Simulated scan of single mutants.
Amino acid sequence: MQMNDNYTSLVAVGDSFTEGMSDRLPDGSYRGWADLLAARMAAASPGFRYANLAVRGKLIGQIVAEQVDVAAAMQPDVITLVGGLNDTLRPKCDMVRVRDLLEEAVERLAPSCKKLVLMRSPGRNGPVLARFRPRMEELFAHIDELAVRHGATVVDLYGSAALGDQRLWDVDRLHLTPEGHRRVAEAVWQALGYAPEDDWNSPLPATAPPNWTARRIADARFARQHLAPWIVRRLTGRSSGDGLPAKRPDLLPYEDPFA
């Protein structure tokens, strides 16, 4: 694939997946695939600018209301949009409304950039994915249709067997590990036409599965630290992102803090 080094700016729009959870840095902040991608694009293009508007817990309606117009006004070369999956994981979900809002977002973002990148989000293998699979696949089919109509690029992470591997998911079972985020960054990098650095979809080395005791300990830890707080937020109508600002709200020159 021919190197494409003419992208000089990137704006990332979305929820916790794009904010970078659970790729935690020593200072407690999150990095994630979008930051990793920006660092690589900046190295290929002097003067590169980057904004990340994503906030954890946001539903597609909030993304449209709070992020889409801001991103469009920045007129960047590349916009990434990942949203709607939080909606599909709610007990009650109006998929017609979700599809309509996603279409509204794409219609507003596509004309404002050179390249709009959409994603079929990865899914962790297990009972949660099986339960919500029909909604997710309805969302992803709509994403494919929107991409065709608006000339967007779709990165198919859902179809990746490697990214479904439970070892690439954090203990909360909702967010990727640092290695998972690195693989997503590589997938988007390649989708933008840059030369591959490695095979982001390569399977992890085979290992013996955890024994019964280790699985039960992991289940108990998950329920205590993540499932119970998630249920409380759903019952009280709160979100993990309430009151949090975007991690990088302005489209500014990017200096890699990880270099």
Results as ranks from 00 to 15, higher is better:
Ala195Cys: 07
Glu197Gln: 13
Val155Asp: 05
Trp230His: 14
Glu186Tyr: 09
Leu192Thr: 02
Val78Ala: 03
Ser22Met: 14
Ala161Thr: 14
Leu53Ser: 06
Ala110Phe: 08
Gly237Asp: 03
Trp189Ala: 12
Arg133Trp: 03
Ile231Tyr: 03
Tyr7His: 13
Leu109Glu: 04
Arg221Ile: 14
Gly83Asn: 04
Ala51Gly: 08
Lys58Trp: 15
Ala185Glu: 06
Glu179Arg: 12
Gly61Ile: 10
Gly159Thr: 09
Leu204Asn: 04
Tyr158Arg: 12
Leu157Gln: 01
Thr88Arg: 06
Asn6Cys: 14
Leu59Trp: 12
Glu19Ser: 03
Gly28Cys: 11
Arg149Tyr: 05
Tyr194Val: 06
Pro91Ser: 13
Ala161Glu: 15
Ala72Lys: 00
Ala39Pro: 00
Leu101Tyr: 08
Ala65Pro: 01
Asp256Asn: 15
Arg120Tyr: 10
Asp198Cys: 13
Leu204His: 00
Arg49Glu: 05
Glu103Thr: 15
Thr8Gly: 15
Gln190Cys: 11
Thr153Gln: 03
Ala38Leu: 03
Ala191Arg: 01
Ala246Gly: 10
Arg149Pro: 02
Val70Lys: 11
Glu138Thr: 13
Asp256Thr: 12
Trp212Cys: 13
Gly241Lys: 08
Thr153Ile: 14
Gln75Asp: 09
Leu146Ser: 08
Leu176Gln: 04
Tyr50Glu: 00
Gly237Lys: 03
Ser160Asp: 01
Lys247His: 10
Phe17Trp: 10
Val117Ser: 05
Gln190Gly: 07
Gly84Val: 12
Ala141Cys: 02
Val98Ala: 04
Arg149Cys: 12
Glu107Met: 15
Ala195Arg: 08
Ala220Arg: 15
Gly243Gln: 13
Val188Pro: 01
Arg40Trp: 09
Phe17Gly: 13
Tyr254Thr: 00
Pro178Met: 09
Trp200Thr: 07
Asp250Asn: 14
Val106His: 03
Gly83Pro: 05
Leu89Val: 10
Leu25Cys: 09
Asn211Ser: 05
Arg133Cys: 08
Thr207Phe: 00
Ala43Trp: 04
Asp23His: 05
Phe222Ser: 07
Met41Asn: 01
Met3Glu: 15
His175Cys: 11
Leu37Ala: 05
Arg216Tyr: 10
Val70Trp: 05
Val78Asn: 02
Ala206Leu: 12
Trp200Met: 02
Gly14Ile: 05
Ala246Trp: 08
Arg182Met: 07
Asn52Thr: 00
Arg31Ser: 04
Pro205Val: 07
Leu227Lys: 13
Asp250Phe: 15
Arg233Leu: 04
